[in-house]
């Protein structure tokens, strides 16, 4: 990986990260935040339960659900066959019965076998029947872990064109916890994309004495700036942050970083507001470029803020290939801090 966020080094870019320890605060990893959100919701709401491959006895491929089986029992922590369609289907049916199931995809890549259940059943339930299906489908997405083409993908664009789905991609531990809570409580299907690269690299001091709920559909200004808007989400937030520091130090320009947090519903007003102030916009995501989510964001900016633009809209994305297994090839494939810096400089000079 280019830049300073190498493997094994805890990233402290999140706003809470710099806070000192105090009573009522605990250093919490992104992974622990996800785990705590599920644990606490299951503690307080008997209709919440979890299903997935290896989540019970084994504790999950990433050990997110370790201890859940002992605490909540096999009726609420269900080890399933390797049957993603059956998992999501069962979640939909249980949601019909007033439960709030959380279905884990061991890797988000494995959501593909459940595609039909998601786009034809879950997404259309409210439209067909007038009642929602309050379920969450969550799983680890993203590259940087040298896991190759089937354990590294970002799948948001597969689902972006389907009405009836909400999509969340948190970048910080606080948001992972608060957004997952909101997703579990939401009355409609939510796809929750956890970036596996962040699981143990992000650590923030989170309050233990307050319930963190982050509403869906609201972006967050991660870093204020006046010269260029960077719209991003997920692990790319930290590359954007590094790029912003570089540009600030070396060029004296300030990048505003908008962390979308929720992809659907998209917080278009926040994007438009920022773009109208800076007049320049760079969209950064880890998924491939063609048909990627940046295209939709760019189109909305054109529709809502064209007159305010001083430069073309630029994208920094992954390449239009499968994700390589080889570490140096993967590094080449993924957007890097230097790519963001040079695209930002091009835009600032336009």
């Amino acid at each position: 990986m280019a830049g300073s966020t190498g493997q094994g080094e805890a990233m402290q870019a999140a706003p809470d990260g710099a806070q000192p320890e105090r009573a009522g605060l605990r250093q919490t990893t992104y992974l622990e935040a996800i785990r705590e959100a599920m644990w606490e919701e299951m503690k307080t709401d008997p209709t919440v339960f979890i299903m997935g491959e290896d989540i019970g006895t084994y504790g999950g491929a990433f050990k997110i659900t370790e201890g859940f089986l002992e605490e909540f029992g096999p009726d609420r922590v269900i080890d399933t066959p390797i049957s993603e369609a059956a998992i999501v289907g069962a979640a939909i049916g249980a949601a019909h019965m007033g439960f709030k199931p959380i279905a884990e995809m061991q890797f988000i890549d494995f959501i593909a076998p459940a595609f039909d259940m998601i786009v034809n059943f879950a997404a259309k339930v409210r439209y067909r029947t007038g009642v929602g299906a309050p379920l969450v489908i969550r799983g680890p997405c993203g590259g940087g872990a040298h896991a190759g083409p089937f354990h590294s993908q970002n799948v948001e664009s597969y689902f972006a064109n389907v009405a009836g789905l909400k999509m969340v991609a948190p970048a910080t531990a606080r948001d992972a916890k608060g957004l997952l809570r909101a997703a579990i409580r939401d009355p409609d299907p939510v796809l929750f994309f956890e970036h596996k690269y962040l699981y143990r690299r992000i650590k923030e001091a989170l309050p233990t004495d307050e319930e963190i709920v982050v509403p869906l559909g609201v972006a967050r200004t991660h870093r204020p700036g006046s010269d260029l808007t960077v719209v991003t989400y997920g692990a790319m937030l930290y590359k954007a942050e590094e790029a912003a520091r570089t540009i600030s130090d070396e060029d004296g320009c300030e990048l505003e970083i908008l962390d979308l947090r929720t992809l659907r519903p998209l917080d278009t007003p926040s994007i438009v507001d920022s773009v109208r102030r800076t007049g320049r916009v760079l969209i950064v995501h880890e998924a491939p470029r063609f048909g990627g989510f940046a295209g939709e964001i760019a189109a909305q900016i054109c529709e809502e803020a064209f007159e305010w633009l001083d430069a073309p809209i630029r994208r920094v994305t992954a390449l239009d290939t499968p994700i390589p297994y080889s570490p140096p090839l993967e590094e080449h494939y993924l957007p890097q801090t230097d790519d963001i810096v040079s695209a930002a400089r091009w835009l600032l000079a336009y």
Partner: peptide, 28 residues
């Protein structure tokens, strides 16, 4: 839902997966 009827979508075979979840709800 008021009649306990879960209709199909277009692709076939999927209703059983959803009915399993309804049955899970009964059991829970």
């Amino acid at each position: 839902p008021a009649l306990g009827v879960l209709g199909p979508t277009g692709p076939l075979g999927t209703q059983l997966c959803v009915m399993n979840g309804v049955a899970l709800g009964f059991r829970l």
